[in-house]
């Protein structure tokens, strides 16, 4: 069944052995929409994000991107090809950056486009420069990742993902590993992407950021979506007890 939404997750369930981490999740994201997923640790939010690009495949349920089912059941070889193909459309940014330490910033950004899209070296360099300009790090193009600060690493990681021209970007706690003073520069880049109407799904602990950037906030707990809505409603007037509890704790902690 084709889906009308840009990203659609249907009846998603996932267990690791006997531990069920996702139970019957339904979620659809429109093109250009920015969705934050919040919730306590262990709520399944990262697992859900990682299910979208098949890093942690679902036990059951479907994931669709622009009318193409991502988690198709295929024989191993075809599955590999299919997954490698669809992943090119889905950028992902990790908590711990995962830059390739043996490559320069340029090498990090151009590796996948050169290999997978067969573009020339000159075009790849132009692409790297374009993406680095966007994240404000053009002068670091020939540095190795070890010479960058955490915030700079994460901006390069974003540039690397963007160089594949993805249709949707997934952020898995992109600022959680950063020193507080470096969070803002990464948030700025994400805001800029939002202004360019990039479709984004953001797992985050930063309620302020979610409130200021996102169109929708999804609160997960115990592997289910407890409540969702626009930030103005969900943060100011949560309907569910669990949401209220979570927000109370979280906002209290942030307030200190």
């Amino acid at each position: 069944m084709r889906s009308s939404a840009f990203v659609e997750i249907k009846n998603a369930a996932k267990s690791f052995g006997t531990l069920q981490v996702l139970r019957d999740i339904n979620l659809s994201v429109e093109r250009g929409q920015i969705v934050a997923i919040i919730g306590p640790s262990g709520s399944g939010k990262s697992t859900l994000l990682r299910a979208i690009n098949e890093l942690d495949p679902l036990t059951s349920g479907e994931v669709w991107l622009e009318g193409v089912q991502i988690n198709r059941q295929l024989p191993p070889r075809q599955y590999e090809k299919h997954v490698n193909q669809v992943r090119q459309n889905i950028g992902m940014v990790f908590q711990h950056f995962n830059l390739f330490p043996h490559l320069t910033v340029r090498g990090n950004i151009t590796l996948a486009p050169r290999m997978l899209k067969g573009i020339s070296e000159a075009d790849a360099n132009a692409l790297a420069e374009e993406q680095l300009t966007k994240v404000g790090l053009l002068e670091k193009i020939d540095e190795y990742p070890s010479r960058l600060s955490g915030g700079q690493k994460q901006r390069v990681a974003i540039a690397r993902a963007l160089a594949m021209k993805p249709k949707v970007m997934l952020f898995d706690e992109a600022t959680s590993a950063l020193d507080p003073e470096l969070v803002e520069e990464v948030n700025q880049v994400m805001k800029q992407l939002a202004e360019e109407h990039m479709t984004m799904i953001i797992v985050t602990h930063e309620m302020d950021f979610a409130a200021s950037v996102c169109d929708r906030v999804i609160f997960m707990d115990g592997g289910v979506v407890v409540e969702e809505g626009p930030p103005s409603v969900l943060f100011k007037n949560p309907q569910e007890e669990r949401t209220r509890n979570f927000l109370r704790k979280h906002l209290a902690r942030n307030g200190d």
């Binding site: 690009n53 890093l55 590999e80 490698n84 193909q85 992943r87 090119q88 889905i90 950028g91 992902m92 990790f94 711990h96 995962n98 830059l99 390739f100 590796l111 996948a112 290999m115 997978l116 990681a157 690397r160 993902a161 594949m164």
Partner: peptide
């Protein structure tokens, strides 16, 4: 080699 390295490469669409 950190598992995150493989994950980053695979999410870009690179094969095993």
């Amino acid at each position: 080699v950190n598992k995150g390295q493989t994950e980053a490469a695979r999410t870009l669409g690179m094969s095993r």
